[in-house]
Simulated scan of single mutants.
Amino acid sequence: MDQVVLVLGASGLFGSHAARAFERAGWQVRRYSRARGDMAGAAHGADLIVNALNPPAYHHWARLVPAITQEVLGAAQANGAAVLVPGNVYVFGKEPGPWGVATPHRAHTRKGRIRAQMEAAYRDAAARGTQVILLRGGDFLAPGEARSLLDMVVLKHLARGRITTMGPPSVPRAYAYLPDMARAAVMLAEGRANLASYEDVPFPGLTFSTEELRAALQDRLERPLRMRPFPWWAMRLASPVWELARELSEMRYLYRMPHRLDNARFAELLPNFRGISLPDLAVQEVAALSV
């Protein structure tokens, strides 16, 4: 019998890729809409719940993230389902890297503290019998989908021969190419019988600087690209009246601080996994942006 997965937030970045990846792997995929209301009912008979729900533009995170977490855990407990959650790097704050399973959670931002509390709730639920897999990634990469910051900001003017850098161009940062991350999610879900009740799995993805990205794109385009800094000053001015500007400014440290995710646990669990390379990502971005 096919395994059944309920994907929450299936129209979002991670959720849409996860739904397609599970379908390709032969799972029966149910896409949950909050308009339906009854999450526990929607999860009836499901083997796995993928929680890709996220309040848009960080809106009301302090209230909605804990509420969503408890609703997901209630649905999982009512149906005996496991839970898979895409995590991020906010919980680490400015801890030295590479960031891995043993890195302390010392969030210093409001959003980081909310995510740390969310993860603690999942760990507590796992201790009470609900299996939880947290697959942690860096900034999402999804060529051709304008919702990723890379496409919305960094490569917005690529056709004009220009890249925007949101921090020092030489600073390496962690990224998660979503087709790969979703494929890894399926592989972990299918091997969940051999996993602990709570698994914190950093997804290594890609780590590169804006300079390295520019070099890869220049190799593909066979022409030079200019670089200009992101106007953070405009975000500061807009913060009192524009929520996204305020929330993005809070995370500026992640564009200034070199960081990457430790691949040790991921390599243990999925030793044969192969992800995209930076040159291949450049090929996809050039094609997606019609440069």
Rank of each mutant, 00 (worst) to 15 (best):
E285L: 08
M235Q: 10
A215L: 14
A215P: 02
F203V: 01
E268H: 15
R252D: 13
L206H: 03
Y255I: 11
G275M: 09
A234V: 12
V241D: 08
P202M: 07
L270C: 09
S290T: 00
V291T: 10
N263C: 12
D219S: 15
P258G: 11
L248C: 10
Y253S: 10
R246Q: 04
E211T: 15
L281F: 14
N263S: 15
R220A: 04
L254H: 08
M257I: 05
W232N: 02
V291M: 08
A282L: 06
I276S: 10
Y255R: 11
S290M: 00
L248K: 12
E250P: 15
R274G: 10
R226L: 05
A288S: 01
G205E: 00
P204T: 01
M227H: 02
P224N: 06
S249W: 15
P202E: 09
M257A: 11
S209M: 05
A245Y: 13
E243M: 13
E250L: 15
R223M: 08
S239F: 07
W232P: 01
Q218N: 14
N272K: 10
R226G: 09
L237N: 00
R274K: 15
R274Y: 07
M227S: 07
E285K: 02
A287P: 03
P258V: 13
W242I: 10
A245H: 13
F203P: 00
L225C: 03
P204W: 01
M235P: 04
P271S: 08
G275L: 11
L248A: 13
F203W: 02
